[in-house]
Design a protein around this nucleic acid. Structure first.
Lengths: 147, 147
DNA sequence: TCAGTCTGGTTTCAAAATGAAACTCATTGA
DNA sequence: TCAATGAGTTTCATTTTGAAACCAGACTGA
């Protein structure tokens, strides 16, 4: 677990990074979007050590990204599901995915793809936009401190 | 440095997470978008230990996210600048920022904001969209394995 | 109903990563 | 010329990670 601080940083990126800016948390959230709910399934899917998984799940639950609830299969066990807050990480995961797709695979190297369920077409590349829909490059933006 | 593997994962999220899925790398990239270029400026700005910064910068350079070049101020030192590949992380950083803005600050708690330089208005909330511009919720998408 | 198994952890311990501080060495500024 | 600064590297103690063993409650089949 990264040293707990910077949760007081006035920079939203820093706070987000503090919370989910580590490999396992990110991958847990990715799997959650893929419908994984159970401890054992996360564990097997990720190959993460159980104690670490346990720790990360706890952190994510504390942060309100995941919530535990009785398992939907009727067993006495519980499951971990994305909260609304967690669901809203979707753009983060998609952004990571799209960047990875574009830059981390060799020409022609196979990789999984994100498709729109309806059309079956790849999801369009996501970009920040101005109010008028114009795509914003980094230089088209300014960070205003502490407003 | 997270244990180097999963760079062979067929999942783009996993590869991205491996590379930039740690607090410092993320914050270094954020600062780079903010125009920070020099070792010392990163170090002072982030409060990161020099050896760790050194390691992360090396990794990011190796990965082609940053590149070194002679400092633009004419001194004999070098600077670290985002490459094209690095610039394309913009949506990732913006997504993290927007999520943080929305979920990691108390009501009315002040935080920095990302504005469109032209209009001065906040950047619109970023979301994955279908080809027709329709916003896609997680359930509206499917991950197709290994295409 | 009772032995065996599965699930969801916790504990233990060694190995790896991190962080603080001291150290180096080139550059710069006065 | 000399002190201060910049950009690291080294050292070493602390923290985090990961693998494996362990454990207590469900569950299952005979």
């Amino acid at each position: 677990m990264p040293t707990q601080n910077s949760l007081e940083s006035p920079c939203p990126v820093a706070r987000s990074a503090e919370l989910i800016g580590d490999r396992w948390s990110l991958l847990i959230v990715r799997d959650a979007f893929d419908g994984v709910r159970r401890f054992g399934d996360f564990q097997r899917g990720l190959g993460v050590a159980r104690n670490i998984l346990s720790d990360r799940l706890r952190r994510l639950v504390e942060a309100g990204v995941l919530a535990t609830r009785p398992a939907s299969d009727g067993s006495a066990y519980q499951e971990y599901a994305l909260t609304d807050k967690g669901e809203q990480l979707f753009p983060v995961v998609v952004a990571l995915r799209q960047w990875g797709e574009r830059h981390l695979f060799a020409e022609g190297e196979p990789h999984s793809r994100l498709l729109a369920r309806q059309s079956g077409e790849p999801v369009a590349f996501m970009a920040p936009r101005a109010a008028d829909g114009q795509v914003l490059a980094p230089d088209d933006t300014v960070v205003k401190k502490l407003s």
